[in-house]
Every structure is written in structure tokens, then in C-alpha cells.
């Protein structure tokens, strides 16, 4: 067992756990943050994407022993005081959600993109979500929603 200190959604956390436990398992089973989904468990589908130190990563491939001092943002950390993130609003408005399972990962990949590049081109959006699979194949509306969120952020800050 090891003790790790890290930040999840701006909240400092200190937990004692197995060093080989995945970040995904810690988020879902230890911290109750079940918005992050497990798809393939091998980094191929993107459903478990979270933002670690500003970068999107598959949380199924990050181990507890790599977490000390890291800053993690999950889908639960996007809304502020009950106000949804522009990405969340845009996904609802564009109807970019079908079964919904891939959406938390999609939004976290899109969030990481907009943090780095506030006005991405369509190709840049497609590249940013190239590691996220949507089995309902609803990509067109997802890309539109991300374009819309980028505009919302630029116009309203």
C-alpha cells in the first residue's frame, strides 16, 4: 500500500491504496466519481479520458504510483456552481448524445483541446477526439457541439 496526495477537481485528496490500482478504479470506486466510464480498459476507446496536468489521458492506464502530486479533472469538475461548462451546454443543444457512454470521455478530450487551442479548426477537433470511439457513430453532431462550445467561450468568456 502507498499513500498518495493528488488533486481531483480542485480538491486535495490523500488516499492509501495499492500502487498498481488504476486511476479509473480510484475515481469510480474510491472517490465515487462514476462519470468517468470504463470501456476497453486498454487505452483504445477513450471512454475513461480525464485531464491529468492539463493533458487528456486514458485513466485506465495510469497507476496510483504515478499519481502523487498530479492534478486531475474529471467530467464532474467541469460545471461551476451548478452552471454547466459551455461544452456540456453545447452537447445538449446540438443533441450530440445518443447512448451517452462515450460522452464524458469525448467532452474531456474536447476540454483539453479548447484549453490549449480556443478556436480549433474542424480537422483539429477531429484529431483531438481521434482517440474517442462513439459506437452510436454520432460524430457529426459531436464535432458541431465542440465548434459551438468554442464559439460560446470566445463570445461570452
Amino acid at each position: 500500500m502507498i499513500k498518495i496526495k493528488f488533486t481531483v477537481n480542485s480538491e486535495e485528496r490523500e488516499i492509501v491504496t495499492e500502487p498498481t490500482r488504476t486511476l479509473l478504479s480510484i475515481l469510480r470506486e474510491e472517490l465515487g466519481l462514476t462519470g468517468t466510464k470504463e470501456g476497453c480498459g486498454k487505452g483504445e476507446c477513450g471512454a475513461c479520458t480525464v485531464i491529468m496536468d492539463g493533458k487528456p489521458v486514458p485513466s485506465c492506464l495510469v497507476l496510483a504510483c504515478q499519481l502523487d502530486g498530479c492534478e486531475i479533472t474529471t467530467i464532474e469538475g467541469l460545471s461551476e456552481n451548478g452552471n454547466l461548462d459551455p461544452l456540456q451546454k453545447a452537447f445538449i443543444e446540438e443533441g450530440a448524445v445518443q447512448c451517452g457512454f462515450c460522452i464524458p470521455g469525448m467532452i474531456m478530450s474536447a476540454k483539453a483541446l479548447l484549453m490549449r487551442n480556443p478556436s480549433p479548426t474542424e480537422d483539429e477537433i477531429k484529431e483531438a477526439i481521434s482517440g474517442n470511439l462513439c459506437r452510436c457513430t454520432g460524430y457529426t453532431k459531436i464535432v458541431k457541439a465542440i465548434e459551438k462550445a468554442a464559439k460560446m467561450i470566445i463570445h461570452h468568456g
Partner: peptide, 26 residues
């Protein structure tokens, strides 16, 4: 050796390897 883990962790999960110890070089 655990570097990025994108291969090692998958191989452990797949039970392709059974490491006795892991050296995390982060």
C-alpha cells in the same frame, strides 16, 4: 520498468506477463 505504461499495463491486464516487481521511473 514502468515508463508511460501504455504497453506494460495492457500486458499485465491481459495476463501476458506476471511481473514480480515494477520500477516506476517517472
Amino acid at each position: 520498468i514502468l515508463a508511460g505504461g501504455t504497453d506494460l499495463i495492457v500486458r499485465i491486464k491481459d495476463r501476458d506477463i506476471y511481473p514480480k516487481s515494477i520500477v516506476n521511473i517517472k
